[in-house]
């Protein structure tokens, strides 16, 4: 049905940065998808337009708040993020590679975990609660300076086991409705499910500002909502399961541009 297909449109940020919203699927997906597409292509015209200009993007208000925390001294060591990292722009490209294996921690870390590592181990400050206020705002700030760069998470080497775990989760039909992520986002993207236009469920655009709750939302919170909607018992944001799922879902978007903070319904 034509009206439900992804739109034929291009996203150029602030009239300068071209965002790749559709591209050839990464090799590991070649059996299931030819093309990967950003959720942006599945949203309405006005929502899409809001994201094209930072002045119109309400998500950028939260990025500004994160800039304040970037410069704010916190914790027993008397340091701010800026004390060690200078300007936020030094983080360009970082978001595109997360989640990634952390040798010292001996596990895959998400960007929020890495920030908390700096807070607890280097600043003597408290960890920020997962997917909430400061944490999600900082993730959005870190994302904002990587916009336009291709998502490129590693799925081999020491990250492989976690990636496999996420992949299993993606294809497992859970809950009383027995639906997997793939049922909706691989087999039915472009179709309407009741009033919702199904996208590929990509997370290159995260964190997303949702018009529905007028704040930034993390990918783990979105996973939680989708799993709840299958009448299943969900996992918690920040849980090992969602870390694995984030790595896997991010890898499905390898090649798309980092786009967050983006705007969705």
């Amino acid at each position: 049905v034509a009206f439900a297909d992804p739109v034929d449109d291009t996203l150029v940020l602030n009239e300068e940065t071209e965002i790749v919203t559709r591209t050839a699927a990464p090799d590991h997906l070649s059996d299931s998808l030819d093309e990967v597409m950003s959720g942006w292509l599945f949203r309405g015209k006005e929502t899409r337009a809001m994201q094209a200009d930072d002045f119109d993007n309400p998500g950028m208000i939260f990025v500004e708040q994160a800039m304040d925390s970037w410069n704010a001294v916190d914790g027993s060591e008397g340091k701010s993020c800026a004390s060690c990292h200078d300007g936020l722009e030094t983080m360009a490209g970082v978001k595109a590679t997360y989640p990634k294996w952390d040798e010292a921690a001996g596990k895959v870390q998400t960007l929020q975990m890495q920030v908390n590592e700096c807070r607890t181990e280097r600043m003597g400050a408290e960890a920020w609660p997962y997917d909430k206020g400061n944490a999600i705002n900082m993730e959005a700030a870190l994302s904002s300076v990587s916009r336009g760069l291709p998502v490129n998470v590693a799925i081999d080497g020491p990250a492989k086991e976690t990636w496999e775990q996420g992949k299993d989760m993606y294809y497992t039909r859970t809950g009383q409705l027995e639906l997997s992520c793939a049922n909706c986002h691989e087999d039915n993207y472009g179709n309407m499910i009741r009033a919702d236009h199904l996208s590929q469920g990509q997370i290159n655009g995260f964190p997303v500002y949702r018009l529905k709750n007028t704040k930034l939302n993390g990918s783990h919170s979105r996973f939680k909502g989708c799993i709840r909607d299958t009448r299943a018992e969900t996992y918690k944001p920040g849980s090992p399961e969602f870390i694995a799922l984030e790595l896997y879902v991010t890898s499905r978007g390898n090649g798309l541009s980092v786009e967050g903070p983006s705007i969705r319904n």
Partner: peptide
């Protein structure tokens, strides 16, 4: 993909309706 409307067994992580909590 159609859910089974008259079935009570064999689910993976069944929840308590749409609460996200365990059945």
């Amino acid at each position: 993909m159609m859910p089974s409307f008259y079935k009570t067994e064999g689910f993976i992580r069944p929840g308590k309706a749409y609460t996200g909590k365990a059945a």
